[in-house]
Amino acid sequence: MSDFRPSHVLRKCAAIGAVAVLAIASACGGATGESDATDDGDSSKPLIYGAFATPLEEPWDGAIHAALMEAKEDGTIRYKYVDNLNTADKMERGLRDIAGNEKPDAIIGDAFAAEEAVRKVAAEFPDTPFAFGSGEKPVAPNMSVFDNWLQDPAYLAGMLSGSLTKSNTLGVVAAMPIPEVNRIVNAYVAGAKSVNPDVTVKVSFINSFFDPAAAKQAAAAQIGAGADVMFAEREGVIAAAEDADIPVIGMMVDQKSDAPKHVATSLLWHMRPTVDAIVEQATSKPAAEDLGEFSFMINEGSELAPLNADIVGGIPEDLITKIEAKKSEIMDGSFVTPVDESAPAGSIDVSKD
């Protein structure tokens, strides 16, 4: 059987190790989240500080943390972090404390729920590079932005799902209808319809970046309505798919270990190219850059995890070949996944039910 593998050895190692890293991280994080255990004390290396809005069990921030841990293990940086800064006030106080007292060489995190707070503190410390996941623009002199551009692996995952479904109904549970989520969901839908024009894709938004219970409940409702393949854009969906004994697509890191007989593959976000760009700022001078291109699949910033043929129902060999061929077209530039950031057709906000 042919094998759908990441194309770059370093990226492959990062993806395989990410779940283990997150398991370690969750033990270090928690309510306060701060962990000094990752700092080896070597002042010749730049100190990078992670400031995360969610617990690190949430895959989006977990992917950033995994890349920073990898850079730390490579001896490139010193690394400290705090997680669960889940309100704008907490984020603002946390960033001001980090920048003023820890004096890191750069701060990296996510600003989607606290854009104004992050930018306010960045302006107060113009000599410290800030690089945050954001839907807004960079701000001179020191506020860079990035995002997870996963439309390519999402399209491939959609092809897989559209081919595996027997009911012609797929389910997606996602955070909220904002551009960076919409483009992933829409690419998944487009991939599914490219191989199965008759497929219906149910999309539910839970209006939260981290609410596993709500996500699981929304997934169970979709499964009850006929969905027989799920896309876990949010944490909690895999558990529902495992309970229902159906295939599911993971998100951000390779989530196969969460349900080895049910996770068919995962969208992988390789943050290391972005981290390396931020470290370069930390060792030179602050900048205001859009670092989004470092997450593109063609730049090895995103990928589809190895296809898991051992899932319930299996994955046919000819389907693996078809997905490999489309991946090659993406990587050589002959196919460009459409970027559609509008709200997916027919989507619902289950948080209002």
Results as ranks from 00 to 15, higher is better:
Thr274Trp: 01
His262Ala: 04
Thr283Asn: 05
Ala288Asn: 08
Ile246Met: 04
Pro273Arg: 10
Phe231Val: 02
Gly226His: 05
Gln217Gly: 08
Val248Gln: 01
Ala221Lys: 15
Ile249Glu: 04
Glu235Arg: 10
Val203Pro: 06
Ala259Gln: 03
Gly236Tyr: 03
Trp269Thr: 01
Lys285Pro: 03
Gly236Lys: 04
Ala215Lys: 13
Asp198Ser: 11
Val253Gln: 10
Ser204Arg: 12
Ala220Phe: 02
Ile223Phe: 02
Ala240Gln: 03
Val275Phe: 00
Pro260Ile: 09
Gly224Phe: 08
Glu293Pro: 03
Ser266Phe: 02
Ser204His: 14
Glu235Leu: 14
Ala218His: 06
Asn299Arg: 14
Leu267Asn: 11
Met297Thr: 14
Ser284Pro: 07
Pro273Thr: 12
Pro197Cys: 09
Asp254Trp: 11
Lys216Thr: 09
Ile206Phe: 12
Val279Arg: 11
Asn299Met: 07
Asn196Glu: 10
Asp228Phe: 06
Gln255Lys: 07
Pro260Trp: 07
Gly236Met: 08
Phe209Tyr: 15
Gly292Tyr: 03
Phe296His: 12
Arg272Gly: 00
Ser266Thr: 15
Asp276His: 02
Arg272Met: 15
Ile278His: 06
Ala264Asp: 11
Ala219Gly: 15
Met230Tyr: 00
Asn196Met: 13
Ile278Gln: 08
Gly224Tyr: 09
Pro260Lys: 09
Val203Gln: 06
